[in-house]
């Protein structure tokens, strides 16, 4: 049995916020695929839970008139990877979603839980980083919007205060229109395994030059990161095999992978370069560019 003292199961966001404000010690549970594992292993103990599972306001994906895509945080990875809007406009997020866990996990794991859990290996993170996703966070007093790139504080830590609930992920049209993306998850097993390393790239190519390029890495630093140095280096340079090599090398200027039983630091550095190279070649091909003479 899980070490749970109490559980609240509100059915509206307003009700949830009220309960949370008067009980700041509560631990939010969404799909529970991280929380219940922590309870099982005793990393959490004697908790009082606030279940947001019944908040239908937080599920679903909306395409707004200005092309903004809003994803409710309670949307599961299965729902995301089968969703038409996502597959049409941001297929890279479908690709990332289906790479996580296995079917039963994806059926219950939410994208909000994936972000708020703060894992460096979170499969949604690199993709949301390259999409410049914004997070809508609410509490009893109001709303704040935070770019996901500023949300992570360290391994397993995100910048959320007690009383706050993440409600939506917002992706703006300018961040996906005309862009091609590729997510590569590298893990020991093809399913039911977390990433040893992950790379997301998103770019726009014009006259065989990158007019926009974004690269994000998972498990390469204490938080998911953007490779800003490699990105600005790539800007407006003519695409060649040599350039792809240089961009991939420059990703290491932002990365600082650690050594763990899953993979050594040196191996991870090698993977960062190799996988970035592969992902870049994919998006160049998709955007009709070429790297060989």
């Amino acid at each position: 049995m899980f070490s749970i003292k109490k559980i609240y199961q509100p059915i509206t966001l307003a009700e949830a916020l009220e309960i949370y404000t008067s009980n700041p010690q509560l631990k939010i549970i969404a799909g529970g695929t991280d929380v219940l594992i922590s309870l099982h292993h005793g990393k959490l103990d004697d908790v009082e839970l606030l279940s947001i599972k019944n908040l239908t306001e937080l599920t679903g994906i909306n395409y707004l008139t200005d092309g903004t895509i809003e994803i409710g945080t309670m949307t599961t990875f299965t729902e995301i990877f089968r969703n038409e809007i996502i597959n049409k406009y941001i297929p890279i997020l479908a690709e990332a979603s289906v790479s996580m866990g296995g079917p039963q996990i994806r059926n219950n794991a939410t994208i909000g839980g994936n972000i708020c859990n703060g894992a460096v290996s979170a499969d949604s993170a690199p993709t949301l980083f390259v999409l410049n996703a914004d997070l809508r966070i609410v509490n009893n007093e109001g709303v704040r919007i935070v770019p996901i790139t500023e949300f992570y504080a360290g391994p397993g830590k995100v910048k959320l205060q007690s009383g706050e609930i993440l409600t939506h992920i917002i992706i703006k049209k300018a961040d996906y229109k005309g862009m091609y993306g590729k997510y590569i998850k590298f893990s020991n097993r093809k399913a039911m395994d977390i990433a040893m390393l992950s790379v997301a790239t998103l770019g726009k190519v014009k006259n065989n030059k990158f007019t926009d390029l974004r690269i994000a890495l998972g498990v390469s630093a204490p938080t998911p990161i953007r490779c800003t140095k490699a990105e600005s280096f790539a800007f407006n340079k003519t695409i060649k095999e040599e350039l792809i090599k240089q961009i991939s090398e420059k990703t290491l200027l932002n990365a600082n992978p650690r050594h763990s039983w899953r993979g050594s630091k040196v191996y991870r550095e090698h993977l960062i370069q190799v996988l970035t190279e592969r992902a870049l070649k994919e998006i160049i091909t998709m955007s009709g560019g070429k790297w060989h003479e």
């Binding site: 749970i4 292993h41 079917p103 039963q104």
Partner: peptide
């Protein structure tokens, strides 16, 4: 008991779910 093996899978409203990590 931790969502890894699938032995506890049941259908909840038609959806395969690991019942060990479902309250």
């Amino acid at each position: 008991s931790v969502g890894e093996c699938g032995a506890c899978t049941v259908l909840i409203d038609g959806v395969p779910t690991s019942s060990c990590i479902y309250l």
